[in-house]
């Protein structure tokens, strides 16, 4: 299996990627102003360096989504067309992740999702998100 290009952890995001390997999604919380964020060396809001990683709930909503129809990369050749999007975690920060949809469920802007951590390689873990059945889903 061909691996997609994998995000290289930098110093500020390393705990996030280590968390994935341990099976959980995490967010940074600012000890001064409480802003939740991802992978910042200092708080994006107040500049404090008192940031602590905490487990996230793993729940969120779809900020936006798309279905990709072109295999830009070999790793996605068998998946095309596939859903993917920008997820807003319950705690506030947004991140990119593939969207996994059971039969009869389609992504919807602001629709609910939950994280599914996928292991792609020996030490490679990525966050995908399962679209949850949603009473607001109108179309099949």
């Amino acid at each position: 299996m061909t691996l997609p290009p994998i995000a290289l952890p930098d110093e500020a995001s390393l705990p996030f990627f280590k968390g994935l390997a341990h099976g959980h999604l995490s967010v940074q919380l600012c000890g001064r102003c409480g802003t939740a964020q991802l992978g910042n060396p200092e708080c994006s809001d107040c500049g404090s360096t008192a940031l602590d990683w905490r487990p996230a709930s793993g729940r969120g909503t779809i900020h936006s989504f798309t279905r990709i129809h072109i295999a830009y990369h070999q790793a996605f050749a068998d998946l095309v067309p596939y859903w993917t999007g920008l997820i807003e975690l319950e705690e506030g920060p947004r991140l990119f992740g593939r969207l996994l949809c059971d039969a009869g469920v389609r992504p919807r802007t602001d629709g609910p999702v939950e994280v599914v951590i996928e292991q792609l390689g020996d030490e490679v873990f990525v966050p995908n998100f399962r679209c949850l059945a949603d009473h607001r889903q109108g179309e099949p």
Binding site: I6, L8, H63, R98
Partner: peptide, 21 residues
Amino acid sequence: SGIDGLRYSAGLFGGAAIYAL
């Protein structure tokens, strides 16, 4: 690199994917 690097493992290559969002 970093959190933004997740775009590629999420399959978001090129400008079209980003502007589609």
